[in-house]
């Protein structure tokens, strides 16, 4: 269905670009999540207000619109020109980071108040309590929702094809334009995304088990191929924090 030349010149590099965009924007989103999520628990109202404003604005933003804005409006508006991939990574990282900040904030808020008190009784500073007690305990709680968010982010990377980043979706569109035979190429694309999502989920499961072991907990093994790529927590869905959408 695709010539060898096309495969090596466009499709394989496209897969690699998708991987790169996923890794970079996930790293940015993770950093933003922890920064904004932690600031949103600050006792100072001004800090809470500023970080809360970031959250509200970026959560209300459509990642795709943001991407177009970064790629085409920002250069003429502010005179900053991004390479297309940077615009894509920034748009994805900043918006998904806003969703992630809610995960971090929620997990920090769920740490038992008694743990904070024990930290005070041992005379830790606020920063030490956060770093040594609150964040490590909140971390295992964050992993399942982070997994959901990571899959959303992976799916979001397809958007960079619309601002001329040559990821695998872009390569797929090219092939359609060249050959007109679109069924196999889009099917293949969907399958690759699905496999990536599956692999990421497996990786996050490992991370979750490791994190729980470090808390001295051994969670029950989840089995079965289709036993939920996502962690289907009932409470998540009901409170709407699940996909952190």
């Amino acid at each position: 269905m695709m010539s060898e030349k096309f495969f090596t010149e466009w499709f394989l590099p496209g897969i690699w670009i998708t991987v790169q965009v996923t890794v970079y924007s996930a790293a940015l989103a993770l950093a933003v999540s922890f920064l904004i999520g932690t600031l949103r628990t600050s006792p100072l109202w001004i800090v809470r207000f500023a970080s809360g404003t970031y959250f509200e604005i970026f959560r209300g933003t459509s990642a795709l619109v943001m991407m177009f804005w970064m790629a085409y409006a920002v250069p003429s508006l502010l005179g900053i020109q991004f390479v297309p991939m940077a615009a894509g990574v920034l748009a994805l990282g900043l918006t998904y980071g806003a969703y992630g900040s809610e995960i971090v904030r929620g997990a920090l808020a769920a740490v038992a108040p008694a743990q904070r008190e024990a930290g005070i009784a041992l005379n830790f500073t606020k920063a030490q309590r956060l770093r040594k007690i609150e964040l490590p305990q909140a971390w295992p709680e964050m992993i399942p929702p982070f997994n959901n968010l990571l899959i959303e982010l992976l799916k979001g990377t397809a958007l960079v094809s619309t601002i001329a980043v040559a990821d695998m979706t872009f390569a797929g569109n090219l092939l359609r334009l060249a050959k007109g035979d679109s069924a196999p190429i889009y099917t293949l694309l969907l399958v690759i995304y699905f496999v990536f999502a599956f692999l990421l989920t497996r990786g996050m499961r490992l991370l979750e088990r490791q994190a729980n072991r470090r808390m001295g907990k051994t969670p029950p093994e989840k089995t079965g191929f289709l036993s939920g790529l996502r962690s289907k927590s009932a409470t998540d869905a009901v409170t709407g924090t699940g996909g952190a959408k």
Partner: peptide, 29 residues
């Protein structure tokens, strides 16, 4: 720093081993 407390619910840090529960504050505080 002159005051220590033992709680009704123990409040050990679940993310640390018994030893590290004890050493963490002396080292970092």
């Amino acid at each position: 720093k002159n005051i220590g407390m033992v709680f009704q619910q123990f409040n050990l840090f679940p993310n640390m081993s018994a030893l590290r529960n004890i050493t963490e504050a002396p080292v970092s505080v």
